[in-house]
Design a protein around this nucleic acid. Sequence first.
DNA 1: GCAAAAGTGTTTCGTTTACACCCATGC
DNA 2: GCATGGGTGTAAACGAAACACTTTTGC
Lengths: 265, 265
Amino acid sequence: MEEGKYCYKYPHPAVTTDCVVFGFDGKRLNILLIERGGEPFKGCWAFPGGFMNIDETAEQGAMRELCEETGLKLEYLKQFGTFTAVNRDPRERVITIAFYALARKSDVQGGDDAAKAQWFPLEEVPPLAFDHDYILRKATEQLKKDIHFEPIGFGLLDEQFTMPELQRLYESILGVHFDRRNFYKKMLQTGILEEAETTDESDSDYYGEHQEMRRMSIDALFGGASQASEQACCEEPRRRKGTKFSFNKERYERLKEDKSFRLEF
Amino acid sequence: MEEGKYCYKYPHPAVTTDCVVFGFDGKRLNILLIERGGEPFKGCWAFPGGFMNIDETAEQGAMRELCEETGLKLEYLKQFGTFTAVNRDPRERVITIAFYALARKSDVQGGDDAAKAQWFPLEEVPPLAFDHDYILRKATEQLKKDIHFEPIGFGLLDEQFTMPELQRLYESILGVHFDRRNFYKKMLQTGILEEAETTDESDSDYYGEHQEMRRMSIDALFGGASQASEQACCEEPRRRKGTKFSFNKERYERLKEDKSFRLEF
DNA sequence: GCAAAAGTGTTTCGTTTACACCCATGC
DNA sequence: GCATGGGTGTAAACGAAACACTTTTGC
């Protein structure tokens, strides 16, 4: 066994956390990865994460590591599995408690702590370190399941969003296509959306400026990873007028209590 | 820190597994508990489980502990959460990886290794050791979710079962009542059930004997815990003719591949 | 002014729900 | 023979899916 000052009667595995962070660029789901600076798997891409401290919960550890490695401070982490294959880490016995998280564009605008953090479209994720390929598959499966029943999609959009944006999000998560009109109806009749009162400062000028800001933040977020988004096929989706909606959390909480309420998509 | 021969540079938590075993007595969901023989929580009821060995996966550890403590050998364990509150164990930092399992009556008939293992109806579970009350709540929530989409209910019934049996099972898991005719239709049109060809030895004699055997196995399983099942209200449900069905696993696997197939109850 | 996307209602179809009667069995 | 539960079909209501046209915006 290794040397060290923490000794136990029986062998203890090391415990890490890993965080699968989903982002949305308006068109595709993206994943936040960091390039490993040390062995093992030096130079490989992996999820943000690391060893859990002895005096913190797994959630706290995951958030701490996420912040340290990417600068992201997220409020919502969902634990979706613990991975315990005996040889998943060549160093010693390590089990990892895995979470997924949903990042808004606006969550990232700020810091640039993460020199080595980078977004990858889900379909273009490179081979990952450890068993992270497997973990990623499990994370996306779980997200697909959860999106049907929990209003988590909004965690990937700005505070205010348009229906087409929301629809594109659902479509990229689930890999299907919805009829626009049916999507509107279904979303509206859930009762958890409200039309955002526009701040209503004149019009074209306001929208123009707003538009510009969004474009910048998209670039900040996804610019580094968009090797493929410059392909001929995909011009960046622009919206025209766009009625804005926002997620009404209070109404959702009330609905959830009331009855066996299902979001169902 | 404690003495011992396994030493690490950084503190490692201990890792345990816990197993929430669901059983069905034809009327109610039951939970398998063991009485703790040592501190902490000596004399309290808790889930079967224990420390994970360094050379086994969590699944393997959970199965091993389950077998050691209750004699149960189950094939299906579902990991549903890892619990990491810092002070959940007074001895040292312990995190637990929790599974739920579904036990058939026939799984138990055999061994009696488990002097201290006992079934409790879900509504009559005593206060549990550690954070096991909380874990139990999470387990039942998860079971309720899963039962909609996975054909796990059959894991709680004998190989062959009648529709009323299956319906009672779904009703006790979900805490609702279904219309008998609609339940039939829905279950049949899933395509995962097949009518079990009766071995067709004459009739009344066969059924009578069979009936007797089942009664015995029920008693073996649930006799110890049925303080409350002797109340006036509930005479044991007997079935008359009862068309038997069985779960067709192959057909299910095929359906699952084919399309976005949902069980939906 | 033309192309592309946003916004809106109605009809059709399938699924879910509600409901009633006959039969078999055990007492 | 009576009470209890098992087995089956049909009609009404609801929700999901399909579908077309008008308006706005960017070029």
